[in-house]
Simulated scan of single mutants.
Amino acid sequence: MSKALRYNFRKSSYSGPRTENCVEVADLPGASAVRDSQRPEAGHIEFPSAQWAAFVVAVKQDAFSA
């Protein structure tokens, strides 16, 4: 069994029930794992907690809008 299967992934709260472009996130000790909800078999990427928290803050501040 792969390590990712033991992670408790949850769909983003910003993803609606009919939304196709979704990510799933799992909380890990000291990190977060992120994967594509439509292709979970493709694997995931992990970010240290500090990096993930900085990303979430930037998203909430709309730092990535054009």
Rank of each mutant, 00 (worst) to 15 (best):
K3I: 09
K3V: 09
A4F: 14
R6I: 03
R6L: 05
R6P: 14
Y7F: 13
Y7W: 10
Y7C: 09
Y7P: 01
Y7G: 00
N8T: 14
F9T: 03
R10T: 03
K11N: 05
S13G: 11
Y14N: 15
S15L: 10
G16W: 05
P17L: 14
E20H: 05
N21Y: 04
C22T: 09
C22S: 04
C22R: 07
V23P: 02
V23H: 07
V25Y: 00
A26S: 08
A26V: 04
P29M: 03
G30N: 03
A31G: 06
A33D: 05
R35S: 01
R35G: 03
R35I: 10
R35T: 09
D36N: 11
D36E: 08
R39W: 11
R39F: 12
P40Q: 08
E41R: 09
G43R: 14
G43T: 10
H44D: 03
I45F: 11
E46T: 07
E46K: 00
E46C: 12
P48I: 12
P48L: 15
P48E: 12
S49H: 06
A50N: 13
A50G: 05
A50M: 05
Q51L: 07
A53N: 15
A54K: 14
F55K: 10
F55R: 07
V56W: 15
V57Y: 06
A58I: 07
V59G: 06
V59W: 00
V59E: 02
K60W: 10
K60R: 13
D62N: 11
D62C: 05
F64G: 11
F64D: 01
S65Y: 13
